[in-house]
Nucleic acid binder design. Structure first.
Lengths: 347, 347
DNA sequence: GATTGGCACTCATAGGTCTTGAGTGCCAGT
DNA sequence: ACTGGCACTCAAGACCTATGAGTGCCAATC
């Protein structure tokens, strides 16, 4: 087992290695950190840490660097969350400025997060399917062409132009609009979808074709692929930290661009920390834990955000395993709170 | 002046250098290309090309590589545009598949272009301001809250939620909607904006506050910052070609992410080739020509696209100066045609 | 038992020297 | 105008060596 001082040594190694990207030796530890013991003692502790596979030596005789497992232990025993500095808070405020709509808010937020952490920042687009219906509208564009608009309480507006098989008259469109709104406003999306399907069956034979087509268009908006999408900023930061990766960062950038694996990872992280709050609300996935997603040698920090208390999606950062977890976790948490507050105000 | 064979030698050097990233020597030229002359003769031609600064030697005694000026001459005398292979056409078709809306079409198109060229692909978001109004709608969401929707003939749908200072009744909203539509449908955006401003003054005193607020919201949608935006794919390709840059690609990725400089470059390229058609419709900006935009050592190929004949925005690729201009120009042109056709069908 | 100073050992890194060979420039000859 | 021949250049790779940070271990000490 690792002693109390052993953990302190691990902390020191992680901190110094993150700061300098050089393997950390026993001497430099006693120099920089005020352990009241000699280098030889630290060496004994380091030998134990190495037995536990928390640190490793790149070459037989050189300093040590943390292993993935070492980072994991380090992160798990991080408890005091350093709050953001005044300058950082100010930076967030400036970035978020006066945003006009949801897309704008998210775009600014993701940039702010990238700026704060110097990592790749990611925001999962708020899932329509986890929000409630605020309003439903059909806009007559031309004969046989209608625009379907769905507005969710989270501020998401989804729209789609539909080409109909049959003609319609505006009166019928209004009737359907009013009936649909009366039926589904305030309902969560899955319930709303079910209700709409039921509603369609209650219309008279003559109108069925039109109603079916329009209801289908609303349903397709609800299921929109758009809901599973990431907004990204700070890819340049990954290039800047290229030396932290053993191979090329090409496959990593590619995986980020493709999004699909990353979305799976976000999903898993959401499932894992379901219901967790307080100091542990930022979940961390480290190094090899991300290998199944083509993201080995990276770490991903995420947390949930949403308006009015309910989590509607996640945001976070991705960077090399060798990153400043403490600072980045604080930034992710803070930005998630800001964003949640902003969304709450809007809705 | 450079002889006919001199140009052929330049072509050979560009081709071989692009293919191998190794300086090209006189011997390898006579080996690979069937000039009916000896290496010494080629060397004489190369000496002339060097006098004209079309090629340069990295070290006193090594092969030659094209200069920016050399690439420029090479590109300018490219005339025969190789059409895409069947496989490539097929790839485009597959990528573009069945798209649901404008955003989807653009996202798929930009991916296809990145895939085809193995470069960073860029599409300028269709400018609302260059399109015509197809429909205008106000949707009553709540007391004092209205959704403004503007649909352009290019398929762009812009929307915004507005919080009003005063109450409104639905009847007034409809009246205004009908009046506004009657006034502006079919007009180009700038004219539509002017018309709306004029329309506002014709409403009676009592309704003025509401009308002004709503008109203002429409105008702000017309001016939406969103119109000046780029959609991007294939950043990973830039990382892959990192060795082609003397320094870090960090500032380049950053410039691409920030978009602002790149948009300026797109603007300049649009202005330059205003009215150009046919074989010269893809414009090329090479190496140092891009330095003012923070994109030295890169080349950018762009061309216009748009529905029903009018150019509404541009698309293109960005990559290292050392790229396959011929193939990439063909791909850019082909993708622009596909996209224009798709947009034409939709509208 | 924990801690320490001492010491032999390891090995990546940096610097230095040498060799190799692709490629040039130039010139005299065709 | 073109070619063969030849001396010259210089980057890249191979090889060697010195340096020194850092280790592991042990006997001595608290």
């Amino acid at each position: 087992m690792v002693s109390e001082r052993g953990l302190a040594v691990l902390r020191a190694i992680v901190q110094d290695y993150v700061a300098t990207r050089e393997p950390v030796g026993s001497k430099s530890i006693v120099d920089k950190h005020r352990f009241g013991v000699s280098a030889a003692t630290i060496r004994n502790d380091m030998a134990l840490l190495e037995d536990e596979e928390l640190i490793a030596a790149p070459h037989t005789s050189s300093g040590r660097i943390p292993t993935d497992k070492g980072y994991r232990v380090f992160v798990n025993q991080l408890t005091d969350v350093r709050p953001l500095s005044g300058a950082q808070r100010h930076a967030i405020e400036v970035f978020l400025g006066d945003s006009v709509d949801l897309d704008d808010v998210l775009a600014r937020t993701v940039r702010a997060l990238a700026q704060l952490t110097h990592q790749v920042a990611l925001i999962q687009y708020p899932s329509v399917s986890r929000a409630k219906v605020q309003h439903l509208e059909f806009v007559a564009l031309a004969p046989r062409r209608v625009l379907t608009v769905l507005i969710a309480d989270s501020g998401i507006v989804e729209q789609r132009v539909v080409d109909l098989d049959s003609d319609y008259d505006e009166e019928a469109l209004h009737t359907l609009r009013d009936a649909a709104n009366a039926a589904v406003v305030g309902l969560p999306m899955p319930d709303a979808a079910a209700m709409l399907r039921a509603l369609a069956t209650r219309f008279p034979e003559g109108a069925r074709a039109l109603v079916d087509e329009l209801v289908a268009s609303v349903l397709s908006v609800i299921d929109a692929t758009r809901q599973e999408r990431l907004i990204m900023a700070g890819a340049a930061n990954l290039v800047r930290t290229e030396h932290d990766f053993s191979g090329s960062i090409y496959p990593i950038i590619e995986a980020i661009e493709q999004q699909v694996e990353l979305l799976k990872l976000f999903g898993e992280m959401a499932a894992e920390q379901h219901g967790v709050v307080g100091n542990r609300d930022v979940s961390v996935s480290i190094g090899r834990e991300n290998e199944p997603f083509g993201l080995a040698e990276t770490s991903v920090l995420t947390t949930g955000y949403g308006s009015s208390g309910s989590v509607i999606a996640r945001l976070g950062v991705l960077g090399p395993t060798r990153m400043d977890y403490s600072t980045n976790m604080a930034a992710v948490r803070a930005v998630a709170r800001y964003l949640s507050r902003t969304l709450g105000e809007q809705a």
